[in-house]
């Protein structure tokens, strides 16, 4: 029984070293193309499993941003924390910003856990491990869609029409996703190697959330301003928010540099992952 499509696979140490680094990109593209259906199935599995034994199910995607927004509203009203001057109603401003922020926050946490969570499966079946990381961010994308529906409801509630820029949201989401996935690839590897990564990351995400003007406006001066100026997440999140609220990008240069940065992070993450995934498997 001879088949034409039989290919010979060779396993040896330092494989990519032998084949040359340029072949890496070709391999990655082929792997991703061949495994689209696997990614969908893995995403579907996580999605179905998440809501199966949960009472409120997808409602949590609404509850989380509303609770966060309410907290900031309370802090602002009592004068403990000042959110700054905002033209749009604060709940709208906050929920919109949070929806983009959550895309990053839940995405990176899910990505970092994807390999460790799959654990024994990775040790027993040889399948595309990149698909595992990519599929894990699908959950974040679904939450984003649900939260965005909440945003639209708020627009209707306040009787405001969103800017024409809302049509560009699918585009604006791309750099955020790329940054999340790039960092997700690296953190998945690190987490598989050293379990501290997961703990550090969930702390870091909370920390970053307060450091990035998502629930408040860009600070006028001080150290926080300087940090914000070099924070790509700020440009990506607030850029996307500006598009929806006003229909224009306020800080174009910063936004495009940040978008470029996220493309770079994504590619770097993908290559690092590709070169080291079998080594990592041994250490899981």
């Amino acid at each position: 029984m001879k088949r034409a499509d039989e290919t010979v696979t060779t396993y040896e140490p330092d494989n990519s070293l032998r084949k040359g680094y340029l072949s890496v990109f070709g391999e990655i593209v082929t792997e991703l193309r061949e495994n689209r259906w696997l990614m969908y199935q893995l995403f579907r599995r996580d999605f179905l499993a998440l809501y199966k034994q949960s009472l409120l199910g997808a409602l949590w995607a609404f509850i989380a941003p509303l609770a966060g927004m309410a907290l900031f509203l309370l802090l602002n009203r009592s004068g403990i924390f000042l959110v700054g001057e905002i033209e749009a109603p604060y709940p709208l401003y906050a929920v919109l910003g949070l929806s983009f922020w959550q895309l990053f926050a839940t995405g990176i946490v899910a990505g970092s856990n994807s390999l460790v969570k799959a654990g024994s499966m990775i040790l027993q079946i040889n399948f595309s491990r990149k698909s595992l990381v990519l599929a894990s961010s699908g959950q974040a994308a679904v939450s984003f869609l649900i939260q965005f529906a909440l945003v639209l409801a708020l627009f209707a509630l306040y009787g405001i029409a969103p800017g024409i820029g809302i049509l560009a949201v699918p585009l604006a989401v791309i750099p955020i996703m790329l940054l999340t996935l790039g960092m997700g690839f690296i953190s998945a590897l690190l987490n598989a190697l050293v379990r501290d990564t997961g703990t550090v990351l969930s702390m870091l995400v909370t920390f970053l959330m307060f450091l990035t003007p998502v629930l408040y406006t860009k600070p006028k001066d001080g150290l926080l301003l300087r940090i914000t100026e070099y924070n790509p997440l700020y440009y990506l999140v607030s850029g996307a928010r500006d598009l929806v609220l006003t229909g224009a990008l306020a800080e174009q240069e910063g936004y495009f540099l940040s978008a470029l940065f996220s493309v770079g992070v994504f590619l770097a993450g993908l290559v690092v992952f590709h070169l080291t995934e079998t080594r990592i498997t041994e250490r899981i």
């Binding site: 088949r3 039989e6 010979v8 696979t9 396993y11 040896e12 027993q124």
Partner: peptide, 20 residues
């Protein structure tokens, strides 16, 4: 043989699809 681990020395060649 399944390609889950790579050898540290030597070489493995497999023709076709491997099921495990």
């Amino acid at each position: 043989l399944n390609g889950i681990f790579w050898p540290d020395r030597g070489r493995i060649m497999v023709r076709g699809r491997v099921g495990a």
